[in-house]
Amino acid sequence: MTANASASAESFKTVDQLIDCVLQRHFGIDPRELPVVGAFEIDQSTQFPGTEQKYRNYYLLLRVNAVFGGCCVEAEQLEQVAARELVGQSLAALLEDARLPVRVAALDAYLGVVLPHRDDHRARELELPYGTPFTRAVARDKAIVSLLAIEPDQAVGLIGVVNPIVQAIEARGARCLPCDFNMQRTAGGLVVQRDMRPVLEQADFIIATGMTLSNGSFDEILAAARRRNIPLVVYAQTGSAIVPRFLGQGVSAVSAEPFPYSQFSADPTAIYLYRAANP
């Protein structure tokens, strides 16, 4: 991390404050000098063999230099975005766009250019193996679980449900409090809450997805973790370059997975695991 980046890391508590730091060139490179050379939208569905669960995911991706900025969104959010309108614009312009997913994807792209994971001494690179979507998902979820220092009898808030993580929580003798907009029950039958606020107040430990950036709930989760002084672990495809900037500032650990995400490639790809020095 550069001196400027290190200094600015202590000056923000929210995503909007981080965006302001970028626009004020605290990270060295002017976002006005970084044009978007490619933009695309993905509507993706997944159903693993032998299961009944169908997953629907929608993504906005921005290509800047050698980096993709990524944001997973709700279906109605993607309908508000026309990727062709974003091409050719500078990241500075998109960081001030009225649409939150556009700002998140632009911020992710900028930080991916300026502070790549491979140059961050805090990051441990892990290669996901060649294989099927299921094989690669299992390897990814195992890596996420490796970050979880969960104690027996803890109440663990899971904001964005991934069934293997539910199983990992329960295997450690903890109680899972699942929360998700798009699921009613976990594979094991737990009722999934839509409102995260009671979960944030009851949990002794919080696990959240990077999609909380695109739906605007990340700042509230981060503030709750700070206020209650409880661990927060984030598994981030969305905002994989954003969430590590909050490491030690409320975030205890991150599994950061830049594009191409595991489900979009059979070839080996990297994820980056971060832990705060003083979680």
Rank of each mutant, 00 (worst) to 15 (best):
L23P: 12
D43H: 01
K142D: 05
G38C: 10
G50F: 04
V36A: 02
L111D: 04
Q89P: 12
V87L: 13
D30M: 00
R124S: 05
L23K: 06
A123M: 14
E76Y: 12
E33P: 03
E96F: 07
V36D: 01
V87P: 12
I29S: 00
V81P: 12
Q17L: 09
A92T: 01
G38P: 05
Y130D: 09
V15N: 03
A143L: 11
L62F: 11
R140W: 12
L34W: 09
L78M: 05
R136I: 12
T46H: 12
A66F: 00
A143G: 00
S45T: 12
I29Q: 13
P31N: 00
T132I: 05
A123F: 00
R122S: 00
R140D: 10
Y110I: 05
Q17H: 03
E85I: 03
F48D: 06
V73M: 00
Q17D: 08
K13W: 00
A66I: 14
V73R: 06
P129F: 00
R32Q: 07
G50C: 01
R124C: 05
K142F: 06
V81T: 11
Q53V: 11
R122M: 00
P116C: 07
P35T: 02
V81M: 09
L126I: 15
E74M: 01
C72S: 14
H121E: 12
E10N: 01
F68N: 09
D141L: 07
V81N: 01
V15S: 04
D119H: 07
